[in-house]
Design a protein around this nucleic acid. Structure first.
Lengths: 320, 320
DNA sequence: GTGAAAGCGCTAACAT
DNA sequence: ATGTTAGCGCTTTCAC
């Protein structure tokens, strides 16, 4: 800036003002100086600005990246979430600092202006840990997770469960089964919605606990149902992969989907859509979730009032 | 630091040295000061340090995040790549700045110490654009892509193609088909390897161009082969999804896999492994790729000699 | 509408 | 082994 100032015959501060579009500086001068800066390939020193402004203009995103439990690492979802986050923060002039749990102790994370936690669903301890940092923080997950201490954005899992129950009821199913892991807060919400809605109609679903969200796990679940001679005519699986596994096992057992057993999955993955038969499922909008997460941290950072928010889910009825 | 210094009765610089584990300062003092800092919740101001040190300790990762062409956005791969990158950079004390193309013009990206380009495969213009920034840059992609102007890390797609050809030859296939998009540099390499190896045995495969890497696209490809009455006994599909679609279509046409037609996919997605029948495929190690990308930028940043590197792929023979 | 001065928090260079 | 000085590049006072 000093160099540009000398070149243009003005002072440093005028350059600074011109480049930040300050109305304090004459329009012509402003444009002249901006042109000059461009011509000379001037680049703002972000560290210097941040030092002076006492903020980093950075939001750290902490992702659970363990390739475990058939989730996170391998699922498409965190990336679309990241896409939404990145899009929104970038257009607000903020940077996205990507970290895993290991890197979260790093100074650069600590000096971020805000924090977004992704895929920490099962690990409430982690949430509490970051909470102590005392910085604006938003978590992706289930409603009510961790109390009021921080903002949560997620899709309305409870409503998702309800919509599946409604569907089963409307097509006259009386013996539904839930496959999933209720230890996971998001899944628990789906289960609660499912159970409550069915209870209103005097139906109590069977809960089949499965920790993995893999195809094999779905196959296994149905086989175990069969070997226990359980009577069932509908399955709500907590992931598309589980649902596809379930369908495969059903077909192998000579049962027809959806005639004998109706199956609904969760997530609306591209794969479920092109499965044979095309999978019915509950869709959540990851991209939008990312955008929302970003907006909430920004609001927190700017000390604006913020509330947790659950996004509506859509039941996509295809052929199962 | 000034506060800590006053508290401890030493000078600022001693604090600075103690906290950065400088051997210049007495071990006891060092530990005492570190303890003091911890107790008082001192946090290093990263901006100030970076300003002083005239570097940002940051590497920008630019991801092509368009949810197009059945790739990138929805595929698991960029995330595992990111996992590897993040892991390696973090442990080297660098931060990962995540951006999309839109955000790449941002000042914070420009003041990064290095650049990693992901999923820019098809868009060579993009690579050239960033090249102009003149910062240490590493690209994920195919060998030789864009000349010597920058470092490329990728899996050895050519070798991947060769290994598939070898497999087909070893089981006596004489009429192989390639399904994929040769406009994509990485796919082109697979095709070249495939074609060259087969040519050594007097076989010329049929090229079936498909732009999308979706299941439908695979189905469609096989149907078109059939309707054109083409004789074929082996398919090399450029993605697992394509391969699965192909197999589905083959089965529908009453052909047996692998008896009538052998099929090999690419990527070794978890889904292919649990497909029925389990999919044979070419595996590439994304995580390791990420680590490698990170190491190369770091080396470039530290002005060490760096070379492009292609990672070996593994042919995973399952049931197709 | 423009400028001068001051200082954000840190560390390299040079004393001591 | 520790301290002093100076300055990284920027922007917010306050003055003109």
């Amino acid at each position: 800036m000093a160099d540009l100032a000398k070149l243009a015959g003005v002072s440093k501060i005028t350059i600074s003002r011109a480049l930040s579009d300050s109305p304090l500086v004459n329009v012509e001068t402003r444009e002249r100086l901006q042109e000059l800066a461009r011509k000379h390939g001037y680049k703002l020193n972000v560290s210097a600005r941040n030092l002076r402004l006492r903020r980093s203009h950075t939001v750290a995103v902490i992702v659970e990246m363990k390739p475990s439990s058939g989730r996170t690492m391998w699922d498409p979802y965190p990336l679309s979430l990241l896409g939404g986050i990145s899009q929104e923060l970038t257009s607000a002039g903020y940077s996205v600092l990507l970290t895993t749990r290991q890197g979260a102790a790093d100074a650069s994370v600590q000096s971020a202006d805000g924090l977004i936690l992704l895929g920490q669903g099962v690990r409430q301890d982690a949430v509490r840990l970051y909470d102590k940092l005392g910085m604006p923080m938003v978590v992706w997950g289930a409603a009510g997770q961790g109390g009021d201490s921080h903002i949560v954005v997620g899709s309305d899992n409870r409503q998702g469960g309800i919509s599946v129950a409604e569907r089963f009821l409307s097509i006259g199913r009386r013996n539904p089964v839930f496959i999933g892991n209720p230890d996971h807060p998001e899944m628990a919400q789906r289960l609660f919605g499912f159970v409550d809605e069915l209870a209103d109609h005097g139906i109590k679903p069977l809960l089949l606990r499965r920790a993995d969200f893999t195809l094999e796990s779905g196959v296994d679940a149905v086989r175990s149902l069969h070997s226990r001679k359980v009577r069932f005519d509908a399955i709500f699986a907590c992931s598309d992969l589980l649902a596809m596994g379930a369908i495969r096992a059903l077909v192998e057992l000579g049962l027809s989907v959806p005639n004998d057993v109706s199956v609904i999955g969760y997530d609306d993955t591209p794969l479920g859509a092109s499965f044979l038969p095309p999978l019915s499922t509950v869709r959540q909008n990851w991209q939008e979730g990312g955008v929302l997460l970003a907006r909430k941290v920004l609001a927190l950072i700017h000390s604006q009032p913020v509330q947790s928010q659950m996004m509506a889910t859509t039941l996509v009825v295809r052929s199962t």
